[in-house]
Design a protein around this nucleic acid. Sequence first.
DNA 1: ACAGCTCCCTGCATGC
DNA 2: TGCATGCAGGGAGCTG
Length: 236
Amino acid sequence: MAGASRQAKRLLLGAHVREIVRHGKQLALVGADGSVLVVQLGMTGSFGVVPASAPCEPHTHIIWTLDRLRELRFVDPRRFGGVTWLKDRHALMARWSHLGPDALALPSGWSAPIAASRRAIKAALLDQRAVAGVGNIYADEALSMVGLAPERPCSRLTARQFEALGQAIGAVMRSALASGGSTIRTYRRMGGGAGTFQASLRVYGRAGQPCVTCARPLESALVAGRTTVWCRSCQS
DNA sequence: ACAGCTCCCTGCATGC
DNA sequence: TGCATGCAGGGAGCTG
């Protein structure tokens, strides 16, 4: 990304951010000249406006000078995030065209592209082409809320179950957002504080602990390459 | 075409 | 105490 950022550095000189848009986990800063900075925070990426005199914390990858006194800094210890510059909004639309509907407000019928698939429902939820914005924690939580086993093939869900799952995804994401997210290890909300949603988690991170509904110990296994926790008794 | 696996990267927890 | 090892996850890219 070095070449791209060098180009962005020059093109962003004197630029003003006109608008900030989001779809799923993707963020875009639209400049007054129409160019776009696409930001992917990954797991550990964050932005912060800090005094220009502040020492650089470790893993600061990009610094934008806002004025004489302030800087916007992009910090990402695990480097799963990234920043890309695009020429205009058309390029942004092309880049985002493969993303599914946003998880915060799924339209009815959102499940049509995956309804006949034989893959596990958990794998489909993590696929940003199907639903944009669901990560590992919230996939497990939503499946727990509606009593669906993560390994269940999509094709074995009824339309009513898909509808309930869509509602649950929106509910759990909005609730987590209101709590500032889930700080399990390293995640930090804007400003550096910790989120509090981890205290409300029904299954994620609670393998072996009692199910909040039936008190039986929660199962843990790898599904779609990600740690997955669920109750074998309540979810089928 | 589709689905599953591997890798990237770093910090933290665990075990010896 | 200090070192080695394993695990965590989003998404690109590869494989079957």
